[in-house]
Design a protein around this nucleic acid. Structure first.
Lengths: 137, 137
DNA sequence: TTTAAACCTGTGTGTAAGACACAGGTCAAG
DNA sequence: CTTGACCTGTGTCTTACACACAGGTTTAAA
């Protein structure tokens, strides 16, 4: 299988496949003409990678998981521990986005009934600069 | 004012100040010794930048806003239009994170009562690979 | 068989928003 | 005058790919 064929097989892009290949998550043989040739093993490997990405694992995580399994060990304990970390991070980011969304939406509605103002020497836009004060130390 | 002083003034890092300076959002004079010297104007400029970042504007947005205001025009219309875009993006990302969080958390709890398995030729980790099927084309 | 268009290849670089590394400069205390 | 602490600018690294590009391959028509 060539790069583009493999990518289409799972609805991803050739660039993504090439990226994983550069990181040696996939290890295709070299075809006569220098093209990369992916075997069935690579196909299921890619499927695994995409599933893991879908679940929030980083590419570095995935590399670690694969290394573990190539040592013949069960990757399950590692996988459980990693997803705990990632879930915590996701939760933090989620809360941050929740707060940001609220701020943005409140700014938007407040700004719709405020007038335009020309900039001054030390004020670029009064909408932004008066919305929330950044505290000085 | 030197880089570190300015950074501390607003609870940010010298690297951040240097980054904005590289992008010419801040335009310090050069001190005799080659150090950058920030005036009062730069101080309020940084405050503006941090406020805008806080509200979800990208650094590129901020550059655009500053350019507008340096042409003497009111940046308010641009600011309103930009925040609408950014809010939409944020909303999309928010929904994506919500879904991801759900998936991760359900995976975590499901995996806690599943056994470890050794890897096989075409299976790296059954927890991940059996969680959700990636569809073939 | 020749040729041309369409498609594909690998490699190299660009992206956002800073964080980090590093060799050297500056400054106060002794 | 020297030490040590702190600071400086510049350059590189990060994530997870997307994009650009010069050239190779394949298919179809001529």
């Amino acid at each position: 299988m060539k790069v583009t064929e493999l990518a289409k097989e799972f609805g991803t892009t050739p660039d993504t496949v090439r990226y994983y290949t550069r990181l040696k998550l996939l290890n295709p043989a070299k075809s006569v003409n220098g093209y990369k040739s992916y075997s069935n093993k690579e196909v299921s490997r890619l499927k695994f990678i995409l599933s893991a990405r879908n679940l929030g694992f980083s590419v570095a995580d995935i590399k670690e998981i694969i290394n573990e399994s190539e040592d013949g060990k069960s990757a399950c304990p590692l996988v459980r521990s990693l997803i705990k970390e990632r879930l915590e991070e996701t939760e933090k980011q989620f809360q941050a986005m929740l707060a940001l969304r609220g701020k943005m939406s409140s700014a938007l509605s407040r700004w719709e009934e405020m007038e335009d103002k020309a900039p001054t020497a030390n004020m670029v836009c009064h909408l932004i600069e008066n919305f929330e004060q950044i505290k000085k130390a």
